[in-house]
């Protein structure tokens, strides 16, 4: 059993993306009567609190684990998902890096099986560790016809 979590890095990553999104969606400077302005101020504060809190919670809910025979992912605050992918079903692994991820020195690992519906991506892995993790999973996937 080998449980790993990357606290700070994913936190920064998630917070960063969420913050930009919220900033974009916020209303401009209010040129409206003061109650509206006050309300939007309260909203902005609430949004800021959420931006601060949500990524921490989301990150706290994210776990991945390499067990003896499967790669297990647990994630989600609202809809919770627990995925299990047997190593020997792994067909290939992609490492993707978006501009934001590159700026933060992170990578995303996308594990693929013969099923198009398999949903196994691990975001927010330190770039230096991503290839190591990929090699570990690939080594365990072994050889043979996985279909």
């Amino acid at each position: 059993m080998w449980t790993v979590g990357w606290g700070l890095v994913a936190l920064i990553f998630l917070a960063g993306t969420l913050l930009t999104e919220v900033l974009i969606s916020l209303p401009g400077p209010p040129r409206l009567p003061w109650p509206v302005g006050a309300a939007s101020g309260v909203l902005a504060a609430a949004a800021a609190a959420l931006v601060w809190k949500l990524p921490r919670l989301a990150f706290g809910a994210w776990r991945y684990e390499l067990t003896d025979s499967t790669l297990e992912l647990r994630r989600g605050l609202v809809v919770r998902t627990h995925s299990a992918i047997p190593y020997f079903r792994v067909q290939h692994i992609d490492i993707t890096r978006s501009p934001v991820e590159r700026a933060l020195g992170l990578s995303q690992l996308v594990v693929r099986t013969a099923a198009a519906t398999t949903d196994a991506r691990i975001p927010g892995i330190a770039a230096a560790d991503a290839e190591g993790l990929r090699d570990v999973v690939l080594a365990r996937s072994g050889r043979g016809d996985a279909v």
Binding site: V79, R80, S83, A84, R89, A115, T118, D119
Partner: peptide, 13 residues
Amino acid sequence: AQSGRVRSTPLQR
């Protein structure tokens, strides 16, 4: 089976 998932919404939980 290629892989499996258990999913739950708040109402399901």
